[in-house]
Design a protein around this nucleic acid. Structure first.
Lengths: 104, 104
DNA sequence: TTTATACATCAAGAATTCATGATGGATCAA
DNA sequence: TTGATCCATCATGAATTCTTGATGTATAAA
């Protein structure tokens, strides 16, 4: 069951994935880590806009950052992707039986 | 890669899952189909509020509805859950290699 | 036919999210 | 030290989402 923290965590993770710009970012990161300026080039998006979306992804735990000199490299956190995959999978119906009761 | 329609579809499905009320609904439907009035009882939520969220879930294809007399029974669409599970899974990093180039 | 129930939908406002441009800190090169 | 680059963050407004209460339709019971 999705109770308490799981439900909130699932909502947060799904919200992070519920935006095309963020999905584009993740698609780029699938190829390997990237810094923000590379992403602005690849995605034709403004810097502050990408920073905003990167923060959403990072707060949700979906990406990791690694500062190096002037740059900050972002990479997918595969553990988090697997976590949300499992949470989503847990939504599948368990019973195939007909409804148990009707009280309306 | 998440290109075009897949990206939009993923965003829509994830958006549908990015709300605690809707996750609560799905959690109820895991036990079997339910009508709206049963959900209002179980979730302590107003009827128009549930109708709103049920519509979001239905538009995304995550639930199916079956009218019967005065009632409308909703049920999880397991195919859609599996679809989004696969789409989310496709976000996992493919390369483990170090970044290929730096041009900033 | 009248009344009650189940549900969708609408209208209005509150809350949240997103985009854009500006500002500032940190790092590095000159 | 000066200037340039990379990035986060802030401020503002636009857009979207969510909640609530009201209205309307269909079904079924009285």
């Amino acid at each position: 069951m999705l109770s308490g923290k799981n439900r909130a965590k699932t909502a947060e993770l799904c919200h992070a994935l519920a935006d095309e710009t963020r999905l584009d970012i993740l698609d780029q990161l699938k190829e390997g880590e990237r810094c923000v300026c590379e992403l602005t080039d690849a995605l034709q998006a403004g810097q502050s806009r990408l920073s905003f979306h990167l923060k959403v992804l990072k707060d949700a735990g979906l990406i990791l950052d690694r500062p190096e000199g002037r740059w900050i490299y972002y990479a997918i956190n595969s553990e988090a992707v697997e976590e949300i995959e499992a949470l989503v999978g847990s939504l599948k119906a368990t019973r195939k039986t007909v409804r148990p009761s009707s009280r309306c």
